[in-house]
């Protein structure tokens, strides 16, 4: 074999090895959480033996989540908050993204700079004055209070993403609609929005996942179980002396489900959205 062939062969093998090792690294912890959630307590906390598949396959962890804990309430709260966040952020992003993509105005760069700067403010720093403000207007320990925070946290990034989707749509398309007698809002609604579908999906998923995954705001601003989301409710399980690993893993699996499903179906759009702002082609 020539030197070049050997080199090519070596690179091929190396590449396959890297891909295989990385796949194992990603799957191993997920698999471990998944398997643990179907084991009995006795099997989970056995110091001497570790089983890679449940000896006794059981759903008891999942059942006790809903029976012993208020997991049903956490799940409902998480779903409602994430859906509302996604819808509101989507509206904000479509309007704002349109403005930033289609108009040239004086304070445009200032506003974009403001969005960029907002990403540098540590969230914990903002929660301190907001905690005092919320205490005054009685928004502490409410779902509305959380919803407002989720919208604010996710809106700037989503708006910028939406803007880059708008920039890909030729202005001529919009102008054609205007010629046909649509006003700007009608043109936006009837012509642009349908073409914008990938961007809408991406932003919806970003905002939904952003709210769904939050732990910090929930921990700081909600204190009673009726307002807890899944991460906050599950966190209350840790910190006690005996961590119930089976239940915790079952809760973790449920917490991952919507993100996995969303990602599986719309990964193309999500990747497109994520790279739209930063990778200029």
């Amino acid at each position: 074999m020539s030197k070049r062939k050997i080199e090519k062969y070596a690179f091929g093998v190396g590449r396959g090895l890297i891909l295989a090792i990385y796949l194992i690294m990603v799957l191993a912890p997920i698999y471990w959480m998944f398997v643990t959630s179907f084991k009995t307590d006795k099997e989970i906390v056995n110091v001497n033996k570790i089983t890679f598949w449940p000896e006794i396959f059981t759903f008891e962890n999942y059942i006790s989540l809903f029976k012993q804990l208020d997991f049903g309430i956490y799940l409902k709260n998480s779903l409602i908050l994430s859906l509302f966040t996604a819808v509101i952020v989507l509206i904000f992003s479509i309007l704002g993204g349109y403005a930033l993509a289609r108009y040239r105005f004086k304070s445009k760069s200032v506003i974009i700079g403001f969005f960029l700067l907002s990403q540098m403010i540590p969230a914990v720093l903002l929660t301190i004055p907001i905690y005092i403000i919320y205490a005054n207007v009685e928004l502490i320990n409410t779902k509305i209070g959380l919803l407002i925070l989720y919208v604010i946290i996710n809106a700037p990034f989503c708006l910028i993403i939406m803007r880059s989707f708008f920039e890909r749509i030729p202005v001529s398309l919009e102008e054609a609609a205007r010629v046909d007698g649509c006003n700007k809002i009608q043109a936006l609604w009837r012509v642009i929005i349908p073409v914008l579908f990938p961007g809408i999906v991406a932003v919806f998923v970003f905002a939904f996942i952003g709210a769904w995954n939050d732990l910090l705001m929930g921990v700081i601003f909600t204190s009673s179980a009726k307002n807890w989301t899944i991460p906050v409710g599950m966190k209350s399980l840790i910190g006690k002396y005996n961590v119930n690993w089976g239940e915790l893993m079952a809760g973790g699996v449920i917490a991952l489900l919507p993100t996995v499903v969303m990602f599986a179906f719309v990964q193309k759009y999500v990747v497109e959205g994520l790279t739209a702002g930063a990778v200029k082609e």
Partner: peptide
């Protein structure tokens, strides 16, 4: 797409 919470307990 995973949450720090889920990955943390994992």
């Amino acid at each position: 797409a995973f949450s720090s919470f889920a990955v943390g307990i994992m």
